[in-house]
């Protein structure tokens, strides 16, 4: 998943496919503006694009393997963004705008402590080596039951799934939660915990496997 705060760059596949691509004007402008450092949001802003358009477009390009999210070593990060260890970035308008802004950084915290929070839903619960059943149906049945069943339950299930990072949803490789087999299992514990976190966030209840 890409966030608005990611610095993006064109993938090697972009150079291979560039001559065959048919894109809209603003999509080319976005792709050609990527420098690996400026955040997706900032590039979008400079092109007059709103956040939803930027995310939708970036997700699509990611899926087509035309772009990648840039990751940094600690030394690269501190050098590129002019951050001293233990301090917030000197300018809030760098590529980590929003992540590293002083208002969101705890006093004295290492800059790494916030850069690691990029995927809170997936990372907030530790992944056990052995854990609960990964069967999806009982979890979704729980959501539907907890919210009163019927259409209300379906809406609650939808809202829970919106909380799950998209790569984890993709990894489930299912087309609909309504037609899953009783024995269908989530691909990993990360997906399980993301759904459980989603349930907590949407329904304010803790899921406990039967």
């Amino acid at each position: 998943m890409i966030t608005l705060h990611d610095g993006l760059e064109r993938a090697s596949k972009f150079d291979e496919l560039a001559s065959t691509l048919q894109l809209r004007r603003y999509e080319w402008a976005f792709l050609l503006a990527l420098d690996g450092r400026t955040s997706a949001r900032e590039i979008g802003k400079s092109l007059g694009l709103d956040d939803t358009t930027v995310l939708t477009m970036a997700d699509f390009f990611l899926e087509q393997q035309l772009i990648v999210a840039r990751s940094y070593s600690l030394s690269e990060y501190t050098r590129l963004f002019n951050v001293k260890n233990g301090a917030a970035p000197t300018t809030a308008s760098t590529a980590v705008n929003g992540i590293g802004s002083p208002a969101q950084t705890r006093t004295g915290a290492s800059p790494i402590s916030f850069s690691l929070k990029r995927k809170p839903a997936a990372a907030s619960t530790p992944t056990p080596t052995t854990g609960p059943s990964l069967k999806l149906k009982p979890i979704m049945d729980f959501v539907i039951r907890q919210s009163g069943g019927g259409t209300t339950g379906q809406i609650a299930a939808y809202r829970v799934l919106l909380k799950v990072p998209r790569p984890l949803l993709q990894a489930m490789k299912i087309e609909s939660i309504n037609f899953i087999d009783d024995n269908f299992e989530l691909p990993n514990h990360e997906a399980y915990h993301a759904i459980v976190d989603g349930i907590k966030s949407v329904l304010n209840v803790t899921y406990q496997a039967a």
Binding site: T53, Q154, Y158, L161, Q170, I174, E175, S176, I177, N178
Partner: peptide, 26 residues
């Protein structure tokens, strides 16, 4: 009965999309 769809799109012959912005997004 409503259906929650993930991943693969099931689009029929003709589809019209409207982008929503403002208080709701999508």
């Amino acid at each position: 009965e409503p259906v929650i769809e993930l991943n693969q799109f099931r689009l029929l012959d003709y589809t019209g999309f409207i982008k929503i912005s403002g208080n709701n997004q999508g």
